[in-house]
């Protein structure tokens, strides 16, 4: 059985992210439609959108500077970078995986968010400004919740490296079921909903309206820039799902040898896990209503509380 060199596997991880993430978005949209009793778009619709946008001419708003033009590239670069840090396909660290731990990855994602927010401000459009303003507001609350999650996970496993986390959880099923861990995972899931722009925070399929957050930032973007943002959004979702599944919740199914077959299996199993998660997300999207802007605070606050209780569960010894 041929073994792939670590470099190739690393490349496969990134490719996986780049190529599969639009598919995941398309699948979830389709699942959602099915649950809602609609036919829905093709699962490849996202690919078509991206390709179409790439071929269009870009229009750049007059007041903007180079920051507006550079931002989407930086954002997508950040997403791709995170894929090299986390265990997408393998259980063993690949080259470059030690360049950042979970916190480091979070900061890299924050850079992507920062670039997007700046680009929105640089566009000079008040609509984009609204979106940027709201997006950073949401980010403020998500950050500490994630930190709490990382804290409790680090408490339990004694490490902060994604691969080491994965390994630690794989070796001890009990750790996965500890109340502290379960609560932390729950909190992470809530943040995942927030960060991927799902109901109850935001309706991802809505048209233009003033309740928008993330998508409003993109008002002045067009052509390849817009394509990159669409793509980037999918990548971010893919990454968060990967972290949630491979690092926190279901650390099995990954390749431990690097053989072609195991890597292929890892890709399939990861996507399967993601689809399962996608069903849950789609169900939530369908059954819940979107929250009023400042009510979002309460939702994220609940997540924060859950993460906090996770820490206490660990500290007081029940978990």
């Amino acid at each position: 059985m041929a073994t792939l060199s670590p470099i190739l596997v690393q490349a496969a991880q990134v490719l996986c992210l780049l190529l599969l993430s639009p598919l995941l978005t398309g699948c979830i949209a389709r699942l959602e439609a099915i649950i809602q009793g609609r036919y829905g778009p093709s699962i490849f619709q996202v690919y078509r959108d991206i390709l179409k946008l790439f071929r269009k001419q870009a229009i750049i708003p007059e007041p903007s500077s180079w920051i507006f033009r550079a931002a989407p590239f930086v954002a997508c670069g950040c997403y791709a970078t995170v894929a090299t840090l986390i265990p997408v396909l393998t259980t063993y660290p690949l080259p470059g995986a030690t360049y950042g731990d979970i916190l480091g990855g979070a900061f890299v994602l924050a850079l992507a968010g920062f670039a997007t927010a700046l680009a929105a401000l640089d566009s000079g459009s008040q609509y984009a400004h609204i979106g940027s303003s709201r997006a950073v507001m949401v980010g403020v609350l998500v950050e500490p919740t994630l930190i709490f999650v990382f804290f409790s996970v680090a408490f339990i496993t004694g490490t902060d490296l994604p691969y080491a986390l994965n390994a630690a959880l794989r070796h001890s099923a009990a750790d996965v079921l500890r109340p502290a861990h379960v609560l932390a995972a729950a909190a992470f899931f809530m943040m995942l909903l927030v960060d991927t722009g799902r109901i109850p925070i935001e309706s991802s399929s809505a048209t233009i309206e003033f309740g928008m957050i993330d998508d409003a930032r993109l008002f002045e973007h067009s052509g390849p820039w817009m394509a990159l943002y669409k793509w980037g959004g999918s990548m971010k979702q893919f990454l968060l799902y990967t972290v949630f599944l491979n690092v926190l919740l279901l650390p099995m199914g990954l390749s431990s040898s690097g053989s072609v077959a195991s890597v292929a299996f890892a890709i399939v199993s990861l996507f399967a896990k993601m689809l399962a998660l996608g069903v849950v997300v789609a169900a939530i999207e369908t059954t819940f209503a979107k929250l009023r802007l400042y009510k979002i605070t309460e939702f994220i606050g609940t997540g924060l509380l859950v993460a906090l209780i996770a820490i206490f569960a660990y500290v007081v010894g029940v978990g």
Binding site: Q57, A58, I59, I60, P61, P63, G223
Partner: peptide, 11 residues
Amino acid sequence: ARPPAARAAVW
């Protein structure tokens, strides 16, 4: 991207 980007007024 074939046609180069163009500047235009904010919408």
